[in-house]
Design a protein around this nucleic acid. Structure first.
Lengths: 195, 195
DNA sequence: TACCACTTTGGTAGTAACTATCACCAAGGT
DNA sequence: ACCTTGGTGATAGTTACTACCAAAGTGGTA
């Protein structure tokens, strides 16, 4: 509830122009309570637990495929689940909220910065989930480079999705971004998930 | 001079544990003066004008090559100039300072976040420098995805360089990161620069 | 030397995001 | 009745940063 009020106020008045105290008043709680649930003002927009989902998808993917492909498919599959694709026309309330948060993240420097830093943590989770030999520094470096590049490509897809107001399917955009960066063959078809 | 004192104090006591007032005292100026030259505390570490250099290198690169290769070579060439490669053994004072700043950027969440956001601005500069048709949204999307992925790969190289205390040549690490993400053929040899 | 823009620097006061510490209160188990 | 526990609230303090205005150095001209 606090987060919903926060995103609404940020969207209406702007992020910097909205104080935490105002959010607390709108939500009917004390500023202390807001800080207890969201350690920083940025967290009011950025709370996001995709990391676990993506990491799980990667750990479940076949280790025989190239890194970029494993990671790319996991990102696409995660997006499919998050947006609940397959609808036509109207967006779900979940997607509306995601879009509102994404727009704030893109337009507000402080949020954009912290969001990108969250990707950094997600990158670590992905590298761990790949399950490579951690003792080989070259393999670890390879995994880091591949993961960071995939996440960056996904981020451009997120930006495009927001600019599009969610009209294009997010998984499709991510696939296009990955193809643009790594070549068409990386994400041709099918899912890594077991059926 | 202010920046040098700031980086020294941050390294000695930690970023959060050092106040801007303390930096001002160490540098022998007033806090106001610090804020005038470095709008935010983060900028005391992050001032960096690579953007222009990289963009120029890209604009000068042959448009016939694939995007990832053009961007990758520009990043490698820029790193070569910045570190003044070719030395053996000791690091230059310039490199020492770069390393100190980089270590702070990597270990301090606030700095890491803002640094990644700076990459975001650099990405825009790169896309502009590529000189593609801005009216074609698909081409623009392609360029954004390629640029963000390349920058992300370069960032992992920077991290590795810092972990290595600068022992490996930075351009070489960037080339390896790009190869790991995009394939060995992307950065095989030679420079884009006109001789 | 004297004068005059112009730039750089400094002081004061204020805002807002946090933090530490303590107190309160309702629910549940013994 | 008593104690624990988890959520809540108030108070006071620190610190990054801003707006506004005053002072001091800098360089060119007469």
């Amino acid at each position: 509830m606090i987060q919903a009020h926060a995103v609404r106020l940020f969207t209406e008045r702007g992020y910097d122009a909205t104080t935490v105290t105002e959010i607390a008043e709108a939500a009917g709680v004390s500023p202390m309570t807001v800080y207890r649930h969201f350690p920083t003002k940025e967290d009011l927009v950025l709370v996001d637990q995709r990391a676990r989902l993506v990491a799980d998808l990667i750990a479940a993917s076949p280790a025989t495929q190239p890194l970029v492909r494993r990671i790319g498919r996991a990102l696409i599959d995660a997006a499919t689940r998050l947006t609940g694709s397959g609808h036509e026309g109207d967006l779900t309330a979940n997607e509306q909220f995601l879009l509102a948060r994404l727009r704030l993240m893109i337009s507000t420097p402080a949020l954009r910065a912290k969001h990108l830093d969250n990707h950094y943590a997600l990158q670590q989770a992905i590298v761990d989930a790949l399950g490579n030999d951690a003792t080989d520094p070259d393999a670890a470096f390879h995994a880091q480079a591949a993961a960071s590049a995939c996440l960056a490509a996904m981020h451009t897809a997120l930006v495009r999705w927001a600019e599009d107001d969610g009209r294009t399917e997010l998984p499709e955009l991510i696939a296009k971004a990955l193809a643009a960066a790594f070549g068409e063959d990386v994400v041709e078809s099918g899912s890594n998930e077991a059926r």
